[in-house]
Computed example of a mutant assay.
Amino acid sequence: MSAPAPGVPLPADKHLLPALTDPAEHADYIRAHHPGADLAHSPGVILLYQSSLAAHATRRPGTRPLERWVSADLHRTAEGVVLCSGFGRGAPAAGLIVEQLIALGARAIITIGTAATLTDILHPGDLVICQDALRGEGLSHHYLPPGRYADPDPDLTGRLEAATNALGAAAHRGRAWTTDALYRESAAEVQQYAAEEALVADMEAAGVLAVTRYRKVPAAAAFAVADSLVRRAPRTNAPQTGDGLRLLLRAAALALTDRCEPAERQGPHPG
């Protein structure tokens, strides 16, 4: 095992070290009690963080709840896409759930949520498709080699962007800065990361993209702007942000179902 890298309290080869625990163990335990716990027949999973968006999504006709296979609320849409909500905020919470979902057979992941803009060109309700994510959180360093960015799957990201455009929204493609420390964001960081062409700050994208890259499952991320770190003002819950989230939800469902063959979408949906 190599020595910790400067400034990072982890071995530089942490991503290569074998883990003592395996999410497959959790999946085996769940299936022993719930034989139908299988996500392999779904086109994919959409992670939802805002309770208002989850409530909207689960009220759609044909959407029904699944058993509580993980520490989150699961619903399946009429198209077979699984919605996952109620698991908390931040990269550690999202990463844990993603590990469990993948162990249960999830074939693709899209994470959608709110973000704060780092630039004056974006306003509440504007949409950003994640090009890559600055790894300002801690989780990704357990999964990927030392580096600055976590990348989404290019094909799924392209499908998500195309679906967003098809729904009539002009989404921006850009970099996100992911941080665990919501209340420790600083003006110096905003200036530095904006200079690196980061458009928004969020709390989950880099972690989710790192876990899915490690597990070789395609993933993408998108955001609706909710507030600004450039011109600080209290968040106002602008209706445009909710509109943007709902549009991203529709686009994510389209992107996931589009990447599956028609025969796959007609397969069994256990649970």
Rank of each mutant, 00 (worst) to 15 (best):
H142M: 08
C130A: 02
G125F: 06
G147Y: 09
L134D: 05
A166E: 01
E137M: 05
A170I: 12
I129P: 13
P145A: 14
G138W: 02
V128L: 00
G136S: 12
P154K: 08
T157N: 02
S140F: 13
A150H: 10
G147N: 12
N165W: 08
D155T: 12
A150K: 13
I129R: 05
G136Y: 03
L156W: 05
R159H: 15
P146Q: 14
I129W: 07
L134A: 11
G168L: 06
A162N: 04
P152M: 05
G125Y: 13
G158V: 00
I129T: 04
Q131H: 07
D132S: 13
Y143H: 13
A166H: 03
L144F: 10
A171S: 12
Y143M: 08
H142Q: 14
A169C: 11
S140H: 14
L167N: 03
L122F: 11
D155R: 04
D155N: 10
Y149Q: 12
L127W: 05
Y143E: 08
R135H: 11
C130D: 05
R135Q: 04
P124Q: 03
A150D: 11
L167C: 05
S140P: 14
D126G: 12
A169N: 13
G158Q: 06
H142W: 08
P152N: 04
D132C: 14
T164L: 01
A162L: 07
V128E: 08
P145W: 11
G125I: 09
A163V: 04
P146K: 13
D155C: 02
G125S: 14
D151H: 09
A169I: 06
R135I: 13
C130H: 01
L160G: 04
G125H: 04
L160V: 04
A171H: 03
A133Q: 05
A171K: 07
V128A: 02
N165R: 11
A171Y: 00
D132Y: 00
G136W: 01
D153V: 05
P154Y: 08
Y149A: 12
T164E: 00
G138Q: 07
H123T: 13
H142I: 05
R135F: 13
G168R: 00
G147I: 10
R135Y: 08
G136M: 02
D126S: 14
C130F: 01
P145Y: 11
S140T: 14
I129Q: 06
G147R: 12
P152W: 00
H142L: 11
Y149M: 15
G136P: 01
G138H: 07
P154H: 04
G158D: 02
E161D: 15
Y149H: 15
N165G: 09
G168K: 02
L156C: 08
L139S: 06
G125N: 10
T157Q: 02
A169G: 07
P152F: 02
G125E: 03
D155K: 02
A133V: 06
P145D: 09
A171L: 00
A166Q: 01
G136V: 07
Y149I: 15
A170W: 05
T157Y: 01
T164I: 09
P145R: 10
D126T: 02
D155H: 15
L156S: 08
D151I: 09
Y143V: 00
R148E: 15
Q131L: 11
P152C: 01
E161M: 15
R148G: 10
E161H: 15
E137S: 06
G138R: 05
G136R: 06
R135S: 10
A162Y: 01
C130V: 09
A171I: 03
P154F: 03
A150G: 12
P154Q: 03
A171P: 12
H141Y: 11
Y143K: 09
A133E: 08
